[in-house]
Each structure stands twice: as structure tokens, then as C-alpha cells.
Amino acid sequence: MTSAQPRYLRPGRFVRAIRMDAFVAFLVRRGVNVWGSRVLSVRGRKSGEMRTTPVNLLTFDGEQYLVAPRGHTQWVRNLRAAGEGELRLGDKVQRFTAIELPDEAKPALLRAYLKRWAWEVGAFFDGVGPKSTDEELRAAAPNHPIFRLTIEP
């Protein structure tokens, strides 16, 4: 399902009202690991200022990945432009470089991501879940950018 316009799903009214992202970011900045959440910092492609947002860090086959459940968000666009960023959990900051994966490399990663976080992000995947076929996951892949991270020592 490829469209001319990259897909982006805005947070719903309820999520915006309770400011869930802000609450998770508050906890993560204080060192509380909320199901693998980190605060992502990446330089804005227009402003040049550091921008932050909570993300779920996926570890799969010894590698670390960021998956964009809401699609082609601002953090995705900024990370594409910058190619690097930081992940924070409490006082621990990890600098990284990122490479965006092609769609054909995504099915196993999407399955692993949904297996862990479908309860939180499943609504953004249009019925695709951890038990979906590879074909269904491949069809969803263009709507969900994934970056492989190389953490700096």
C-alpha cells in the first residue's frame, strides 16, 4: 500500500489531552525504563535546534532499531536529515548514527516490534499485528520507517 504522500498519523484527542508522550518522557528522563522507552534527541532539519520525543528502542538479533509507528513524523524527517542523535534514559546518554532500512528488510522487525508494543501502538498499523503474514507486514512496511542504530562507545 504505497501512496504519493508519506503517511503520518497524528496523536488522537485523548492522547493529546492526557499528554502521554510528555508523561513517558518525564519518567524516562528520571531513569524509569518504561517498556524500553528512551528520549530521542535529534537536531531539527530547519531550526538546527535539538528536538526530543519518547521512542521505543527495539533490540533484535543484537542490533538496536527505532521504529516509527505513526509513520513519517517530524522525528523521522529530522533523523533522515541529521543521520545521528542521542538516546537518553535518566543520566545515561547514548550517541548514535542511524541508517534507514529498505522496506524489504522490515517484516521481521515489525513483527518483533508489534509483539512487544502492539498494546501501545497497534492502532497505527491498520490491523497488522505480530501474527500477521510476511506479506501483510511487507504491505505495511512503507508506512513505518525503521532505522538501525550504531551506538557510539
Rank of each mutant, 00 (worst) to 15 (best):
L27V: 08
V28Q: 10
R29M: 09
V32H: 09
N33K: 08
V34D: 00
W35F: 03
R38W: 00
L40Q: 00
V42M: 02
V42S: 01
V42H: 00
R43M: 03
R43A: 02
R45V: 02
K46W: 02
R51W: 10
R51P: 07
P54F: 05
V55K: 00
N56T: 04
N56R: 06
L58E: 01
T59K: 10
D61A: 07
G62S: 13
G62F: 15
G62W: 14
E63V: 13
Q64K: 15
Y65A: 03
Y65L: 02
L66W: 00
L66V: 04
A68D: 14
P69H: 15
P69Y: 14
G71W: 11
G71K: 15
H72E: 14
T73Y: 14
Q74T: 14
W75E: 10
R77D: 09
N78P: 09
L79Y: 01
A81M: 15
A81R: 15
E84G: 11
E86M: 12
L87W: 03
L87T: 01
G90A: 07
D91W: 04
V93N: 01
V93M: 03
R95E: 01
R95V: 00
F96W: 09
T97Y: 12
I99V: 15
L101G: 08
L101S: 05
E104H: 14
A105V: 07
K106L: 09
P107Q: 13
A108V: 08
L109C: 07
L109V: 07
L109Q: 04
L110H: 02
Y113R: 00
W117C: 01
W117L: 04
A118T: 09
A118F: 10
W119S: 08
E120P: 06
F124D: 08
V128K: 00
